[in-house]
Amino acid sequence: MISIKQINEKDIELCCELDRNTISLWSKKQWANEFKKDGTKIFGLLIKNLVIGICVFQVVLDEAQINYFVVNQKFREKGFGSYLMIYLIKKCEKLNLKKLLLEVSQSNVSAERFYSRFDFYTVGIRKNYYKDGSHALLKEKKLTTK
């Protein structure tokens, strides 16, 4: 059974473990800081009780910034990421947000292709943004508010 639930600080070890096994983006301290930020929501994608994906987004006024989006490698290209993204988009539309923002490494072709399927388009570039020297593509999706 697939479900999505809001994750809170008591689940920080699950977040750290999934991060370590995928993109290794944040330390435990950085995860702890995310839980404390105003307007930040953290959702987990679960199969039974196993967290296979996480989305962290922060609402600021009438926009949301995706700060973290990942699905465990074993579950990629099976529709789970799309399931989580569709949930996120609907959630943001219910909140009457106007747009959804994110950044992705220009070298992460599969992620860029994934986001383009949801009508995210590049609105800017941060040159040499990542440690490996790759550029960050700033992406935006306009939302339809209800």
Rank of each mutant, 00 (worst) to 15 (best):
M1P: 14
I2G: 02
S3L: 11
N8A: 06
N8D: 15
E9T: 04
K10N: 13
K10R: 13
D11P: 04
E13K: 14
C15E: 04
L18F: 08
L18D: 03
N21Y: 05
S24R: 15
L25Q: 09
W26I: 03
S27I: 06
S27A: 07
K29W: 11
K29G: 13
Q30W: 05
Q30A: 15
N33L: 15
N33P: 01
N33I: 09
F35N: 02
K36P: 01
D38F: 10
G39V: 06
G39N: 07
T40Q: 07
K41V: 04
I42E: 09
F43V: 01
G44N: 09
L46D: 03
L46S: 04
I47P: 08
K48Q: 15
K48W: 11
L50T: 05
V51Q: 06
G53Y: 01
I54P: 02
C55F: 03
V56D: 10
V56F: 14
V59L: 09
V59R: 09
V59K: 13
V60M: 08
E63Q: 10
A64E: 12
Q65F: 13
N67P: 01
N67Y: 09
F69Y: 09
F69I: 07
V70W: 02
V70Q: 01
V70N: 02
N72Y: 06
F75Y: 15
K78C: 15
F80Y: 14
G81W: 07
Y83C: 15
L84A: 08
L84W: 10
M85D: 08
M85G: 10
I86W: 03
I86D: 14
Y87N: 06
I89T: 03
K91V: 07
E93P: 02
E93D: 04
L95R: 03
L95I: 03
N96K: 13
K98H: 06
K98T: 01
K98L: 13
K99Y: 05
L101G: 01
L102Y: 14
L102F: 15
E103C: 06
V104Y: 03
Q106F: 08
Q106V: 04
S107K: 12
N108V: 04
N108Q: 06
V109C: 12
V109I: 15
E112G: 08
F114Q: 05
Y115R: 05
S116F: 10
S116D: 04
F118L: 08
F118C: 11
F118A: 08
F120E: 04
F120V: 08
F120S: 11
Y121R: 13
Y121H: 13
T122E: 06
T122M: 12
T122P: 01
T122Y: 02
I125S: 01
R126L: 10
R126G: 09
R126K: 14
Y129N: 08
Y130I: 08
D132W: 02
G133F: 12
S134Q: 07
H135V: 03
A136N: 09
A136Q: 06
A136D: 09
A136E: 10
L137R: 14
L138H: 01
K139Y: 00
K139G: 00
E140R: 13
E140C: 15
E140N: 11
E140D: 06
K141L: 09
L143M: 12
L143P: 02
T144L: 12
T144K: 14
T145Q: 13
